[in-house]
Design a protein around this nucleic acid. Structure first.
Length: 509
RNA sequence: ACGCCAAUAGUCUAGUGGUAGGACUUCAGCCUUCCAAGCUGGAAACCCGGGUUCGAAUCCCGGUUGGCGUACCA
Protein backbone atom coordinates (compact mmCIF):
# COMPACT_ATOMS: atom_id res chain seq x y z
CA UNK A 1 0.00 0.00 0.00
CA UNK A 2 1.17 3.50 -0.72
CA UNK A 3 1.32 6.45 1.63
CA UNK A 4 -2.26 7.44 0.96
CA UNK A 5 -4.66 6.20 3.58
CA UNK A 6 -6.79 3.24 2.68
CA UNK A 7 -9.89 5.13 3.76
CA UNK A 8 -9.11 7.92 1.28
CA UNK A 9 -8.89 5.41 -1.52
CA UNK A 10 -12.19 3.86 -0.49
CA UNK A 11 -13.79 7.31 -0.41
CA UNK A 12 -12.38 8.07 -3.85
CA UNK A 13 -13.94 4.96 -5.41
CA UNK A 14 -17.14 5.51 -3.46
CA UNK A 15 -17.56 8.98 -4.91
CA UNK A 16 -16.55 8.08 -8.46
CA UNK A 17 -18.54 4.91 -8.81
CA UNK A 18 -21.74 5.74 -7.04
CA UNK A 19 -21.40 3.98 -3.72
CA UNK A 20 -21.59 6.77 -1.13
CA UNK A 21 -21.53 10.58 -1.10
CA UNK A 22 -22.09 13.35 1.46
CA UNK A 23 -25.68 14.44 2.01
CA UNK A 24 -26.68 17.86 0.64
CA UNK A 25 -23.32 18.13 -1.04
CA UNK A 26 -24.30 21.03 -3.33
CA UNK A 27 -25.19 23.07 -0.24
CA UNK A 28 -21.93 22.35 1.50
CA UNK A 29 -22.98 19.10 3.08
CA UNK A 30 -24.19 18.22 6.54
CA UNK A 31 -21.78 16.64 8.96
CA UNK A 32 -22.48 13.06 9.82
CA UNK A 33 -24.93 12.37 7.01
CA UNK A 34 -24.26 10.37 3.87
CA UNK A 35 -26.34 9.31 0.89
CA UNK A 36 -25.96 5.94 -0.75
CA UNK A 37 -25.71 5.99 -4.53
CA UNK A 38 -26.84 3.31 -6.97
CA UNK A 39 -24.14 0.77 -6.15
CA UNK A 40 -24.07 1.57 -2.45
CA UNK A 41 -27.80 1.01 -2.30
CA UNK A 42 -27.63 -2.32 -4.10
CA UNK A 43 -24.90 -3.43 -1.77
CA UNK A 44 -26.76 -2.39 1.36
CA UNK A 45 -29.73 -4.29 0.12
CA UNK A 46 -27.64 -7.42 -0.33
CA UNK A 47 -26.09 -7.09 3.11
CA UNK A 48 -29.54 -6.80 4.64
CA UNK A 49 -30.82 -9.70 2.53
CA UNK A 50 -27.99 -11.93 3.68
CA UNK A 51 -28.65 -11.07 7.32
CA UNK A 52 -32.39 -11.46 6.93
CA UNK A 53 -32.02 -14.88 5.36
CA UNK A 54 -29.94 -16.41 8.13
CA UNK A 55 -31.11 -14.43 11.17
CA UNK A 56 -34.82 -14.16 10.38
CA UNK A 57 -36.21 -16.23 7.52
CA UNK A 58 -34.26 -19.40 8.28
CA UNK A 59 -35.36 -19.26 11.91
CA UNK A 60 -38.56 -20.80 13.22
CA UNK A 61 -39.64 -18.20 15.70
CA UNK A 62 -38.16 -14.94 14.55
CA UNK A 63 -40.25 -12.33 12.78
CA UNK A 64 -39.41 -8.88 11.55
CA UNK A 65 -41.31 -5.68 12.28
CA UNK A 66 -41.06 -2.10 11.06
CA UNK A 67 -41.30 0.54 13.75
CA UNK A 68 -41.73 4.29 13.74
CA UNK A 69 -38.52 6.33 13.67
CA UNK A 70 -40.01 9.09 15.78
CA UNK A 71 -41.23 8.15 19.24
CA UNK A 72 -42.88 10.17 22.00
CA UNK A 73 -40.87 11.30 24.99
CA UNK A 74 -42.24 8.86 27.59
CA UNK A 75 -40.63 5.98 25.69
CA UNK A 76 -37.20 7.40 26.35
CA UNK A 77 -38.01 8.50 29.84
CA UNK A 78 -38.74 4.88 30.61
CA UNK A 79 -35.88 3.41 28.61
CA UNK A 80 -33.33 5.59 30.35
CA UNK A 81 -32.11 7.25 27.19
CA UNK A 82 -33.31 10.67 28.23
CA UNK A 83 -30.99 10.51 31.22
CA UNK A 84 -28.04 8.58 29.90
CA UNK A 85 -28.10 10.34 26.55
CA UNK A 86 -28.18 13.76 28.06
CA UNK A 87 -25.08 14.79 29.91
CA UNK A 88 -24.62 18.09 31.73
CA UNK A 89 -21.33 19.58 30.53
CA UNK A 90 -19.30 22.55 31.64
CA UNK A 91 -16.54 24.19 29.68
CA UNK A 92 -13.43 25.97 30.86
CA UNK A 93 -13.44 29.59 29.63
CA UNK A 94 -9.67 29.62 29.46
CA UNK A 95 -8.48 26.31 28.03
CA UNK A 96 -11.82 25.27 26.52
CA UNK A 97 -11.74 21.77 27.98
CA UNK A 98 -15.12 20.10 28.49
CA UNK A 99 -16.14 18.18 31.61
CA UNK A 100 -19.13 16.25 32.80
CA UNK A 101 -20.48 18.65 35.46
CA UNK A 102 -21.90 15.95 37.72
CA UNK A 103 -18.77 13.81 37.63
CA UNK A 104 -16.55 16.78 38.30
CA UNK A 105 -18.56 17.72 41.38
CA UNK A 106 -18.61 14.13 42.64
CA UNK A 107 -14.85 13.89 42.26
CA UNK A 108 -14.12 17.05 44.15
CA UNK A 109 -16.86 17.18 46.78
CA UNK A 110 -17.33 13.41 47.15
CA UNK A 111 -21.07 14.00 47.18
CA UNK A 112 -23.62 12.55 44.74
CA UNK A 113 -24.44 14.95 41.92
CA UNK A 114 -25.93 12.65 39.32
CA UNK A 115 -29.39 13.61 38.10
CA UNK A 116 -29.36 17.13 39.53
CA UNK A 117 -30.79 20.07 37.62
CA UNK A 118 -28.50 22.43 35.77
CA UNK A 119 -29.18 25.14 38.35
CA UNK A 120 -28.29 22.83 41.21
CA UNK A 121 -25.06 21.85 39.47
CA UNK A 122 -24.14 25.49 38.88
CA UNK A 123 -24.76 26.25 42.54
CA UNK A 124 -22.59 23.38 43.70
CA UNK A 125 -19.78 24.49 41.40
CA UNK A 126 -20.03 28.01 42.78
CA UNK A 127 -20.41 27.01 46.43
CA UNK A 128 -17.41 24.72 46.26
CA UNK A 129 -15.36 27.12 44.15
CA UNK A 130 -14.67 24.45 41.57
CA UNK A 131 -12.34 25.53 38.79
CA UNK A 132 -11.02 23.82 35.71
CA UNK A 133 -9.03 20.78 36.85
CA UNK A 134 -6.42 21.18 34.13
CA UNK A 135 -5.75 24.96 34.12
CA UNK A 136 -7.72 26.37 37.09
CA UNK A 137 -9.70 28.63 34.74
CA UNK A 138 -13.30 29.72 35.26
CA UNK A 139 -15.96 27.19 34.34
CA UNK A 140 -19.00 28.05 32.25
CA UNK A 141 -22.55 27.33 33.36
CA UNK A 142 -23.64 23.73 32.91
CA UNK A 143 -25.33 22.98 29.62
CA UNK A 144 -27.38 19.97 28.67
CA UNK A 145 -25.95 17.90 25.85
CA UNK A 146 -28.58 15.56 24.51
CA UNK A 147 -27.49 13.07 21.93
CA UNK A 148 -31.07 12.52 20.78
CA UNK A 149 -32.69 14.61 18.03
CA UNK A 150 -35.78 16.12 19.56
CA UNK A 151 -38.82 17.66 17.91
CA UNK A 152 -42.40 18.69 18.58
CA UNK A 153 -45.24 16.47 17.47
CA UNK A 154 -48.40 18.10 16.17
CA UNK A 155 -49.17 21.67 15.08
CA UNK A 156 -49.62 22.97 18.60
CA UNK A 157 -46.47 21.23 19.71
CA UNK A 158 -48.03 19.78 22.79
CA UNK A 159 -46.00 16.58 22.66
CA UNK A 160 -42.26 16.15 22.64
CA UNK A 161 -40.74 13.44 20.52
CA UNK A 162 -37.31 12.12 19.63
CA UNK A 163 -35.83 10.29 16.71
CA UNK A 164 -34.95 6.88 18.09
CA UNK A 165 -31.31 6.43 19.12
CA UNK A 166 -31.64 2.67 18.66
CA UNK A 167 -34.21 0.48 16.93
CA UNK A 168 -34.75 -1.75 19.94
CA UNK A 169 -37.30 0.41 21.75
CA UNK A 170 -39.98 -0.18 19.10
CA UNK A 171 -39.82 -3.86 19.91
CA UNK A 172 -40.04 -3.45 23.67
CA UNK A 173 -42.98 -1.07 23.55
CA UNK A 174 -44.82 -3.46 21.21
CA UNK A 175 -44.01 -6.43 23.37
CA UNK A 176 -47.53 -7.23 24.50
CA UNK A 177 -48.93 -7.47 20.99
CA UNK A 178 -45.88 -9.26 19.67
CA UNK A 179 -46.00 -11.80 22.46
CA UNK A 180 -49.67 -12.33 21.60
CA UNK A 181 -48.77 -12.89 17.97
CA UNK A 182 -46.20 -15.44 19.11
CA UNK A 183 -48.93 -17.08 21.21
CA UNK A 184 -47.24 -16.11 24.46
CA UNK A 185 -44.70 -18.86 24.17
CA UNK A 186 -41.01 -18.40 24.76
CA UNK A 187 -38.54 -18.25 23.24
CA UNK A 188 -39.17 -15.97 20.30
CA UNK A 189 -37.32 -13.25 18.49
CA UNK A 190 -38.36 -9.96 16.94
CA UNK A 191 -36.14 -8.44 14.29
CA UNK A 192 -35.99 -4.97 12.88
CA UNK A 193 -34.02 -3.13 10.21
CA UNK A 194 -34.06 0.60 10.12
CA UNK A 195 -32.43 3.89 10.85
CA UNK A 196 -31.45 5.32 14.18
CA UNK A 197 -30.19 8.79 14.99
CA UNK A 198 -27.67 10.19 17.41
CA UNK A 199 -26.59 13.78 17.39
CA UNK A 200 -22.91 12.98 17.70
CA UNK A 201 -20.79 15.81 18.99
CA UNK A 202 -18.15 15.12 16.41
CA UNK A 203 -18.97 12.89 13.42
CA UNK A 204 -15.81 11.45 11.93
CA UNK A 205 -14.30 8.84 9.70
CA UNK A 206 -16.61 8.75 6.70
CA UNK A 207 -19.59 6.47 7.34
CA UNK A 208 -18.14 5.00 10.53
CA UNK A 209 -19.28 7.73 12.91
CA UNK A 210 -22.44 9.34 11.66
CA UNK A 211 -25.60 10.93 12.94
CA UNK A 212 -27.96 8.71 10.98
CA UNK A 213 -27.18 5.05 10.68
CA UNK A 214 -28.97 1.84 9.91
CA UNK A 215 -29.22 -1.06 12.30
CA UNK A 216 -30.13 -4.70 11.85
CA UNK A 217 -31.26 -5.92 15.20
CA UNK A 218 -32.99 -8.77 16.96
CA UNK A 219 -34.45 -8.91 20.43
CA UNK A 220 -34.50 -12.56 21.39
CA UNK A 221 -36.82 -13.15 24.33
CA UNK A 222 -36.19 -16.20 26.48
CA UNK A 223 -36.92 -17.69 29.87
CA UNK A 224 -33.89 -16.89 32.07
CA UNK A 225 -34.25 -20.22 33.81
CA UNK A 226 -33.81 -21.92 30.44
CA UNK A 227 -30.97 -19.77 29.20
CA UNK A 228 -29.05 -22.84 28.11
CA UNK A 229 -31.88 -24.52 26.26
CA UNK A 230 -31.68 -22.68 22.97
CA UNK A 231 -33.66 -24.85 20.52
CA UNK A 232 -31.07 -24.69 17.76
CA UNK A 233 -27.86 -24.40 19.68
CA UNK A 234 -26.70 -27.83 18.52
CA UNK A 235 -26.44 -26.51 14.99
CA UNK A 236 -23.79 -23.96 15.94
CA UNK A 237 -22.15 -25.61 18.98
CA UNK A 238 -18.99 -26.60 17.13
CA UNK A 239 -18.46 -23.29 15.37
CA UNK A 240 -15.23 -21.65 16.45
CA UNK A 241 -15.09 -17.98 17.29
CA UNK A 242 -12.39 -15.49 18.24
CA UNK A 243 -12.90 -14.34 21.80
CA UNK A 244 -11.20 -11.76 24.00
CA UNK A 245 -12.18 -12.32 27.61
CA UNK A 246 -12.15 -9.74 30.37
CA UNK A 247 -9.25 -11.53 31.96
CA UNK A 248 -7.24 -11.36 28.73
CA UNK A 249 -7.84 -7.62 28.55
CA UNK A 250 -6.59 -7.10 32.07
CA UNK A 251 -3.43 -9.05 31.35
CA UNK A 252 -2.94 -7.61 27.89
CA UNK A 253 -3.58 -9.76 24.87
CA UNK A 254 -2.14 -10.23 21.44
CA UNK A 255 -4.10 -13.05 19.88
CA UNK A 256 -7.78 -13.71 20.59
CA UNK A 257 -8.74 -17.02 22.08
CA UNK A 258 -10.01 -19.55 19.58
CA UNK A 259 -12.90 -21.54 21.06
CA UNK A 260 -16.05 -23.31 19.99
CA UNK A 261 -19.12 -21.53 21.31
CA UNK A 262 -20.01 -24.65 23.24
CA UNK A 263 -16.58 -24.72 24.85
CA UNK A 264 -16.90 -21.05 25.73
CA UNK A 265 -20.12 -21.73 27.61
CA UNK A 266 -18.72 -24.73 29.43
CA UNK A 267 -15.78 -22.63 30.58
CA UNK A 268 -18.06 -19.79 31.58
CA UNK A 269 -16.59 -17.33 29.08
CA UNK A 270 -19.96 -16.56 27.52
CA UNK A 271 -22.97 -16.23 29.84
CA UNK A 272 -25.51 -18.33 27.95
CA UNK A 273 -26.53 -20.13 24.79
CA UNK A 274 -28.75 -17.35 23.52
CA UNK A 275 -25.87 -14.94 23.30
CA UNK A 276 -23.40 -17.59 22.17
CA UNK A 277 -25.71 -18.65 19.34
CA UNK A 278 -25.48 -15.20 17.81
CA UNK A 279 -21.71 -14.97 18.15
CA UNK A 280 -21.47 -18.10 16.03
CA UNK A 281 -24.03 -16.86 13.50
CA UNK A 282 -22.28 -13.53 13.15
CA UNK A 283 -18.94 -15.18 12.57
CA UNK A 284 -20.42 -17.17 9.71
CA UNK A 285 -22.18 -14.17 8.25
CA UNK A 286 -19.14 -11.92 8.17
CA UNK A 287 -17.07 -14.64 6.55
CA UNK A 288 -19.73 -14.96 3.84
CA UNK A 289 -19.45 -11.22 3.31
CA UNK A 290 -15.75 -11.43 2.51
CA UNK A 291 -14.35 -10.38 5.89
CA UNK A 292 -11.59 -12.81 6.87
CA UNK A 293 -12.00 -14.41 10.27
CA UNK A 294 -8.49 -13.35 11.27
CA UNK A 295 -9.68 -9.74 11.12
CA UNK A 296 -12.37 -9.77 13.80
CA UNK A 297 -13.06 -10.98 17.33
CA UNK A 298 -15.61 -10.69 20.10
CA UNK A 299 -14.53 -8.61 23.06
CA UNK A 300 -16.26 -9.03 26.38
CA UNK A 301 -16.67 -5.41 27.42
CA UNK A 302 -15.62 -4.42 30.90
CA UNK A 303 -18.46 -3.58 33.25
CA UNK A 304 -17.96 0.15 33.10
CA UNK A 305 -17.94 0.16 29.28
CA UNK A 306 -21.27 -1.55 28.84
CA UNK A 307 -24.40 0.47 28.03
CA UNK A 308 -26.79 1.36 30.83
CA UNK A 309 -29.20 -1.43 29.91
CA UNK A 310 -26.68 -4.20 29.50
CA UNK A 311 -25.57 -6.89 31.91
CA UNK A 312 -22.77 -7.87 29.61
CA UNK A 313 -21.75 -6.92 26.11
CA UNK A 314 -19.77 -8.86 23.56
CA UNK A 315 -18.75 -6.42 20.89
CA UNK A 316 -17.61 -7.66 17.55
CA UNK A 317 -14.52 -5.65 16.76
CA UNK A 318 -12.82 -5.56 13.42
CA UNK A 319 -9.32 -4.59 12.53
CA UNK A 320 -9.58 -1.63 10.17
CA UNK A 321 -6.86 0.51 8.65
CA UNK A 322 -7.53 3.20 11.23
CA UNK A 323 -7.68 0.85 14.20
CA UNK A 324 -10.23 -1.31 15.94
CA UNK A 325 -13.87 -0.60 15.30
CA UNK A 326 -17.00 -2.03 16.86
CA UNK A 327 -19.36 -3.10 14.10
CA UNK A 328 -21.74 -5.37 16.02
CA UNK A 329 -22.87 -5.20 19.63
CA UNK A 330 -24.23 -8.25 21.42
CA UNK A 331 -25.96 -7.22 24.59
CA UNK A 332 -27.49 -9.15 27.40
CA UNK A 333 -30.32 -6.73 28.12
CA UNK A 334 -31.88 -9.06 30.68
CA UNK A 335 -35.38 -7.82 31.60
CA UNK A 336 -34.16 -4.24 32.01
CA UNK A 337 -36.24 -2.68 29.23
CA UNK A 338 -39.40 -4.69 29.76
CA UNK A 339 -39.40 -3.94 33.48
CA UNK A 340 -38.85 -0.23 32.85
CA UNK A 341 -41.64 0.00 30.29
CA UNK A 342 -43.97 -2.18 32.35
CA UNK A 343 -43.62 0.14 35.29
CA UNK A 344 -43.80 3.40 33.35
CA UNK A 345 -46.79 2.39 31.24
CA UNK A 346 -48.52 0.35 33.89
CA UNK A 347 -48.61 -2.64 31.61
CA UNK A 348 -47.85 -6.24 32.44
CA UNK A 349 -45.20 -7.96 30.37
CA UNK A 350 -45.33 -11.32 32.09
CA UNK A 351 -45.63 -14.57 30.23
CA UNK A 352 -47.13 -17.62 31.94
CA UNK A 353 -45.27 -20.86 31.49
CA UNK A 354 -45.54 -24.11 33.42
CA UNK A 355 -47.26 -22.35 36.27
CA UNK A 356 -44.63 -19.60 36.50
CA UNK A 357 -44.94 -15.99 35.51
CA UNK A 358 -41.90 -14.85 33.62
CA UNK A 359 -40.64 -11.51 32.47
CA UNK A 360 -38.43 -12.71 29.66
CA UNK A 361 -34.78 -11.83 29.32
CA UNK A 362 -33.35 -10.49 26.12
CA UNK A 363 -30.29 -11.30 24.07
CA UNK A 364 -29.67 -8.63 21.46
CA UNK A 365 -27.39 -8.81 18.42
CA UNK A 366 -27.30 -5.31 16.99
CA UNK A 367 -25.41 -4.58 13.81
CA UNK A 368 -24.50 -1.38 12.06
CA UNK A 369 -25.20 -1.75 8.36
CA UNK A 370 -23.00 1.20 7.47
CA UNK A 371 -20.04 -0.01 9.47
CA UNK A 372 -20.36 -3.51 8.06
CA UNK A 373 -20.53 -2.09 4.55
CA UNK A 374 -17.40 -0.04 5.10
CA UNK A 375 -15.60 -3.04 6.56
CA UNK A 376 -16.46 -5.04 3.46
CA UNK A 377 -15.14 -2.26 1.26
CA UNK A 378 -11.83 -2.24 3.14
CA UNK A 379 -11.42 -5.98 3.33
CA UNK A 380 -12.31 -6.55 -0.32
CA UNK A 381 -10.21 -3.67 -1.67
CA UNK A 382 -7.43 -4.81 -4.00
CA UNK A 383 -4.68 -2.95 -5.76
CA UNK A 384 -2.26 -4.63 -8.15
CA UNK A 385 1.20 -3.75 -9.44
CA UNK A 386 -0.18 -1.64 -12.22
CA UNK A 387 -2.17 0.44 -9.80
CA UNK A 388 -5.48 -1.09 -10.80
CA UNK A 389 -8.08 -0.88 -8.12
CA UNK A 390 -10.81 -3.43 -7.68
CA UNK A 391 -13.08 -5.03 -5.13
CA UNK A 392 -13.01 -8.74 -4.51
CA UNK A 393 -16.62 -8.92 -3.33
CA UNK A 394 -18.15 -12.34 -2.78
CA UNK A 395 -21.06 -12.73 -5.21
CA UNK A 396 -23.45 -12.72 -2.26
CA UNK A 397 -22.81 -9.06 -1.54
CA UNK A 398 -21.55 -7.78 -4.90
CA UNK A 399 -23.74 -4.84 -5.96
CA UNK A 400 -23.80 -6.17 -9.52
CA UNK A 401 -23.39 -9.85 -10.25
CA UNK A 402 -22.63 -10.17 -13.92
CA UNK A 403 -21.60 -7.85 -16.75
CA UNK A 404 -22.45 -8.65 -20.36
CA UNK A 405 -20.25 -7.31 -23.13
CA UNK A 406 -20.28 -7.69 -26.89
CA UNK A 407 -16.70 -8.14 -28.03
CA UNK A 408 -17.48 -5.49 -30.68
CA UNK A 409 -20.33 -3.21 -31.36
CA UNK A 410 -20.74 -4.31 -34.96
CA UNK A 411 -21.96 -7.40 -36.80
CA UNK A 412 -24.97 -7.78 -34.55
CA UNK A 413 -22.91 -8.67 -31.49
CA UNK A 414 -24.23 -5.71 -29.53
CA UNK A 415 -27.84 -6.73 -30.09
CA UNK A 416 -27.11 -10.35 -29.26
CA UNK A 417 -25.32 -9.33 -26.06
CA UNK A 418 -28.18 -7.08 -25.03
CA UNK A 419 -30.65 -9.95 -25.44
CA UNK A 420 -28.54 -12.18 -23.23
CA UNK A 421 -28.25 -9.42 -20.64
CA UNK A 422 -32.01 -9.01 -20.75
CA UNK A 423 -32.57 -12.70 -20.20
CA UNK A 424 -30.18 -12.76 -17.26
CA UNK A 425 -32.12 -9.92 -15.68
CA UNK A 426 -35.36 -11.82 -16.22
CA UNK A 427 -33.73 -14.77 -14.49
CA UNK A 428 -33.09 -12.56 -11.46
CA UNK A 429 -29.44 -11.69 -11.91
CA UNK A 430 -28.17 -8.20 -11.26
CA UNK A 431 -26.75 -7.84 -14.75
CA UNK A 432 -24.98 -4.87 -16.28
CA UNK A 433 -24.62 -4.23 -19.99
CA UNK A 434 -21.68 -2.25 -21.34
CA UNK A 435 -20.79 -1.65 -24.96
CA UNK A 436 -18.49 1.37 -24.92
CA UNK A 437 -14.74 1.26 -25.21
CA UNK A 438 -12.36 -1.60 -25.72
CA UNK A 439 -13.14 -4.92 -24.12
CA UNK A 440 -10.22 -4.73 -21.70
CA UNK A 441 -11.39 -1.41 -20.42
CA UNK A 442 -14.82 -2.79 -19.79
CA UNK A 443 -13.33 -5.66 -17.80
CA UNK A 444 -11.41 -3.11 -15.75
CA UNK A 445 -14.51 -1.04 -15.12
CA UNK A 446 -16.39 -4.14 -14.02
CA UNK A 447 -13.53 -5.23 -11.76
CA UNK A 448 -13.38 -1.85 -10.10
CA UNK A 449 -16.91 -2.20 -8.77
CA UNK A 450 -16.42 -5.85 -7.93
CA UNK A 451 -18.60 -7.58 -10.51
CA UNK A 452 -17.57 -11.23 -10.09
CA UNK A 453 -18.28 -12.47 -13.62
CA UNK A 454 -18.23 -11.02 -17.12
CA UNK A 455 -20.00 -12.69 -20.01
CA UNK A 456 -18.60 -11.85 -23.43
CA UNK A 457 -20.39 -12.35 -26.69
CA UNK A 458 -18.13 -12.89 -29.70
CA UNK A 459 -18.25 -14.34 -33.19
CA UNK A 460 -18.39 -17.88 -31.90
CA UNK A 461 -21.51 -16.94 -30.04
CA UNK A 462 -23.18 -16.37 -33.39
CA UNK A 463 -21.85 -19.49 -35.00
CA UNK A 464 -21.81 -22.02 -32.17
CA UNK A 465 -24.18 -20.51 -29.62
CA UNK A 466 -21.55 -20.33 -26.92
CA UNK A 467 -20.46 -17.50 -24.63
CA UNK A 468 -17.43 -16.94 -22.43
CA UNK A 469 -17.53 -16.31 -18.71
CA UNK A 470 -14.60 -14.45 -17.24
CA UNK A 471 -13.73 -14.87 -13.59
CA UNK A 472 -12.81 -11.58 -11.95
CA UNK A 473 -10.33 -13.07 -9.49
CA UNK A 474 -8.31 -15.28 -11.85
CA UNK A 475 -9.06 -13.44 -15.11
CA UNK A 476 -9.56 -16.86 -16.66
CA UNK A 477 -12.32 -17.61 -19.09
CA UNK A 478 -14.46 -20.61 -19.86
CA UNK A 479 -16.61 -21.12 -22.90
CA UNK A 480 -19.99 -22.73 -22.44
CA UNK A 481 -23.23 -23.09 -24.42
CA UNK A 482 -25.62 -20.15 -24.04
CA UNK A 483 -28.32 -22.46 -22.79
CA UNK A 484 -26.16 -23.42 -19.79
CA UNK A 485 -25.30 -19.85 -18.88
CA UNK A 486 -27.92 -19.22 -16.22
CA UNK A 487 -27.30 -22.50 -14.45
CA UNK A 488 -23.52 -22.20 -14.50
CA UNK A 489 -23.61 -18.62 -13.29
CA UNK A 490 -25.94 -19.67 -10.51
CA UNK A 491 -23.61 -22.43 -9.38
CA UNK A 492 -20.59 -20.15 -9.46
CA UNK A 493 -22.40 -17.51 -7.46
CA UNK A 494 -23.84 -19.82 -4.82
CA UNK A 495 -20.44 -21.36 -4.35
CA UNK A 496 -21.78 -24.73 -5.52
CA UNK A 497 -19.06 -24.76 -8.13
CA UNK A 498 -15.61 -23.24 -8.27
CA UNK A 499 -14.35 -21.69 -11.43
CA UNK A 500 -11.45 -24.11 -11.51
CA UNK A 501 -13.85 -27.04 -11.75
CA UNK A 502 -14.65 -26.03 -15.30
CA UNK A 503 -11.15 -26.87 -16.43
CA UNK A 504 -12.41 -28.69 -19.52
CA UNK A 505 -14.05 -25.51 -20.72
CA UNK A 506 -11.09 -23.25 -20.03
CA UNK A 507 -9.91 -21.10 -22.86
CA UNK A 508 -6.18 -21.46 -23.23
CA UNK A 509 -4.61 -18.20 -24.19
C1' A B 1 -17.26 20.98 21.27
C1' C B 2 -12.16 23.29 21.25
C1' G B 3 -7.27 23.92 18.77
C1' C B 4 -4.20 23.40 14.25
C1' C B 5 -4.40 22.53 8.93
C1' A B 6 -7.08 22.28 4.38
C1' A B 7 -11.01 23.27 0.39
C1' U B 8 -9.87 24.39 -7.88
C1' A B 9 -14.34 19.82 -13.31
C1' G B 10 -16.92 13.22 -11.57
C1' U B 11 -11.69 11.98 -9.40
C1' C B 12 -6.54 13.62 -8.60
C1' U B 13 -4.13 18.05 -9.16
C1' A B 14 -1.16 22.98 -11.41
C1' G B 15 -1.59 27.99 -10.74
C1' U B 16 -1.54 33.69 -10.53
C1' G B 17 -4.50 40.34 -7.15
C1' G B 18 -6.56 41.02 -13.93
C1' U B 19 -11.96 34.68 -13.49
C1' A B 20 -8.05 29.04 -14.86
C1' G B 21 -4.12 24.47 -17.28
C1' G B 22 -3.14 19.16 -17.01
C1' A B 23 -4.04 13.87 -16.08
C1' C B 24 -7.59 10.24 -15.45
C1' U B 25 -12.92 9.65 -15.98
C1' U B 26 -17.19 10.55 -19.01
C1' C B 27 -19.94 11.44 -23.84
C1' A B 28 -20.20 11.26 -29.60
C1' G B 29 -17.60 9.18 -33.60
C1' C B 30 -13.48 6.44 -35.96
C1' C B 31 -10.31 2.23 -35.06
C1' U B 32 -10.36 -2.49 -32.57
C1' U B 33 -11.56 -10.58 -33.04
C1' C B 34 -10.51 -10.65 -25.30
C1' C B 35 -7.82 -7.67 -20.45
C1' A B 36 -7.70 0.16 -18.90
C1' A B 37 -2.35 2.90 -22.86
C1' G B 38 -4.62 4.54 -30.89
C1' C B 39 -7.18 8.96 -33.44
C1' U B 40 -10.85 13.28 -33.72
C1' G B 41 -14.27 16.17 -31.27
C1' G B 42 -17.43 17.58 -26.91
C1' A B 43 -19.07 18.30 -21.73
C1' A B 44 -17.30 19.62 -17.05
C1' A B 45 -14.34 23.38 -11.60
C1' C B 46 -12.00 27.98 -8.21
C1' C B 47 -17.05 25.57 -0.89
C1' C B 48 -20.66 29.64 0.98
C1' G B 49 -21.32 34.80 2.85
C1' G B 50 -19.15 39.46 3.95
C1' G B 51 -14.88 42.90 3.73
C1' U B 52 -10.33 45.32 1.44
C1' U B 53 -9.51 46.65 -3.83
C1' C B 54 -10.58 49.79 -10.04
C1' G B 55 -10.70 44.44 -9.91
C1' A B 56 -10.69 38.63 -5.23
C1' A B 57 -10.76 31.93 -6.98
C1' U B 58 -6.06 34.44 -4.93
C1' C B 59 -5.57 38.89 0.74
C1' C B 60 -8.70 39.49 5.54
C1' C B 61 -13.07 38.01 8.66
C1' G B 62 -17.14 34.70 9.53
C1' G B 63 -19.60 30.13 8.26
C1' U B 64 -19.76 25.13 6.14
C1' U B 65 -17.34 20.65 5.14
C1' G B 66 -13.09 17.45 5.73
C1' G B 67 -8.31 15.74 8.16
C1' C B 68 -5.33 15.48 12.66
C1' G B 69 -5.04 16.18 18.13
C1' U B 70 -7.92 16.66 22.77
C1' A B 71 -12.71 15.66 24.70
C1' C B 72 -17.15 12.67 23.82
C1' C B 73 -18.73 7.72 22.07
C1' A B 74 -25.60 4.83 25.54
Amino acid sequence: MTEERLMDKIIDVSLRRGFISPTAEIYGGAGGFYDYGPLGTLMRQKIIDLWRQSFVLDEDKVFEITGSLLLPEPVFQASGHLDSFSDPLVQCDKCKSMFRADELIEQITKQKAEGLTLEALDKLIQDNSINCPSCKGELSKARQFNLMFGTEIGSTGGMKGYLRPETAQNIFINFKRLAGFMRNKLPFGIAQVGHSFRNEISPRNFILRVRQFEQMEIEMFYDPEKENEHPRFDEVAEIEINLVTREMQEKGWEEPLRVTVEGAIVEGLIPNQYLAYYLAMETEMLKAMGIPETEFWFRHMQDHEAPHYSAGNFDLEVNLSLGHMEIIGNALRTDYDLQKHAKASNTSFEIADEGRKIVPHVAEPSMGVDRILYTILEKCYREDDRGWVWFQFPAAIAPLEVAVFPLMKKDGLAELAYDIHDELKDAGYLSFYDVSGKIGKRYARADEIGIPFCVTIDYETKEELTVTIRDRDSMQQIRIPIEDLEVVLGELMDGEAEFSEFEDYLIKS
